[in-house]
Design a protein around this nucleic acid. Sequence first.
DNA 1: CTCATTTAGATGCACCTGCATCTAAATTGC
DNA 2: GCAATTTAGATGCAGGTGCATCTAAATGAG
Lengths: 142, 142
Amino acid sequence: MNTPDPVIQAAWVTIVSKSRTLLEAVEAALKNAGLPPLAWYDALLEIEKAGPDGLRPFELKERLLLPQYGTSRLLDRMAKAELIERRDCDDDGRGQIVCISDKGQAVRQAMWPVYARVLSEKIEDKLSPEDAAQLVKLLSKL
Amino acid sequence: MNTPDPVIQAAWVTIVSKSRTLLEAVEAALKNAGLPPLAWYDALLEIEKAGPDGLRPFELKERLLLPQYGTSRLLDRMAKAELIERRDCDDDGRGQIVCISDKGQAVRQAMWPVYARVLSEKIEDKLSPEDAAQLVKLLSKL
DNA sequence: CTCATTTAGATGCACCTGCATCTAAATTGC
DNA sequence: GCAATTTAGATGCAGGTGCATCTAAATGAG
């Protein structure tokens, strides 16, 4: 098998290991603050952005690139924590509509400073805006 | 909370999403070929590099940055699959020595072409060596 | 030597994920 | 309109992960 060039392997290793440590830092900070995991933030943000009419689970699944069963269970957990509301969909008897609750908004807002602080410390303090732009440009080629 | 600059947020999102899709591609290719997950490759490689004298689980844990319990269970699974051998450590009655088996070497070697092909298609084909070097340089600042 | 502390590794429990499959409603083809 | 197919969403099961804790051996202080 033709082995990828060492610099390509280095790129791979670096991408994977940095993203892992960054993710762990965010998850740890959230847990430490008694807040839900990062996946909930992304979901709450999408649901909040959908506005008062909410959105369908399959739309959430597409936007977050989650598997269908993962979405179903994530919504279960968030509903149990009363961060979202699920109601039957009028247009489609199979479906439902998901909306964020007041508590859900509050929790998302509480998560942001914790989340942002990690991004600030681990990324903003280490990269100039030019570096960051360059990084996005390079990663976007993948 | 002072929100990180948008380009910093873009960098974060890009790092996380690209590493996720790359990892999923590697895992899917391995699974598709009937091979073990990526974590096993890393572990087998470290154990193989340790040579005939093997290494201690705590050393593996440090090299792979895994939690202690994760290492213990990963070794359980690999031992059950007969890819490694665990023997008691003479020097330390609490410890053990882990070595790769012939089958373990064969499996690791079978994994590499599958793994390498994904790296080749998803990274090498998309980035010049200069791009890759630049990417490593930027990510290394984090 | 003896007791307290540290270190290596295993494990019970709760929770999360992937896979396959199921139910029910919507859509399509005839 | 009706049977076949597709789509939305839920779920049983097997396995993986984090957390806390446990056992046993090594180390260290007196």
